[in-house]
Amino acid sequence: MVREPASPSRPSNTAGFGREVAEDLAFHGFQARFLEDRVRALAHAGEIDPRHASFAIDVRSTVIARAMYRAADGSGDLCYPGGHAPGPSLAFGATPLEFLRHLACKATSAGGAREGGSSWADTRRGLIGWAGPCGFMTQVLAGAALAFRRRRQNRAALAFEGSRALDAGGWHEGMNLAGALRAPLIVVLDAGTAGGADRVPSIGAVAEGYGFAFAELGQDPFEALVDRVTAARRRAVDGAGPTLLRLGPRSDSGPWALHESFLASVADQWGLAGPELDAIERAARAGVDHAVARLGKEPSPEPRDALAPVRTDHEPSPPWTRRESPSPGPVEPQTGSGHVH
């Protein structure tokens, strides 16, 4: 991508963050775009599960998660990526290759291929993933947040929930608990997905009823997203209580309009020149290209090995099960052990 040279005029940064953060957000936006393209292509080509043909990344979730990640110097906060798994996972430090290993159920994935999809857990990195019923993870992250407070840690937890959570009793239990115990928690409710959002028009009232602060996030620019999340995080770790952020529908101008708009502003705001942006873009593309090239060489799981660490039963003694029987024919009587016919 060729860009116009940066304006020679002096940058006029009005955002709450500096050039390094701007470069970082530009990089993560590019990485998300390239990864989305490549995953869809792999799915269409039949190289991974075709259900990933509609794989999508909402760049806002990337920015929100990255703001949390950076706020704790990249070592402290905790994130449940939910349905936004690709963006927040990468924002919390997962590499594109790690992401693809998990998506494609490779033996080298974090869960040893026992879990697939786009969400996984790596608590050392601050990721707790899952793909089960919606709403539960607000409970789980509330408990994790209480652990932070108990240890006097300057940490907060971030949960991305889909709007279906509004229908789930488990989500409301988690909200009630987090509000009652003032857990340092931020819940991002994606009200743009199908489901309960229309049926619950006053989500802010729901949040406030549970003792949460509330804010709407629509098509806000990256700077505003970072500001909102930073404020919510500060409120959480200061003991002032949890926050619910409602993420509105995605832009009608295309999924990457916010990223494009951000890129268009970086020269004026932070003095980032075209060649510098090109270098950022190339770096993001190279990481994704490497991951895709490597994915085909990653081993598939061997079921016995993959399940051995978690299996809790005993291998049955032959010849009592069909699987272990040496042949389908009559079993020869054994003598001596008195244990087996």
């Binding site: 608590t123 539960f136 409970q139 408990g143 652990a147 988690g174 608990l177």
Partner: peptide
Amino acid sequence: GFTGAAAGAAHM
């Protein structure tokens, strides 16, 4: 709700 929260604390 509180069993789920306990799980989160156990994660930590």
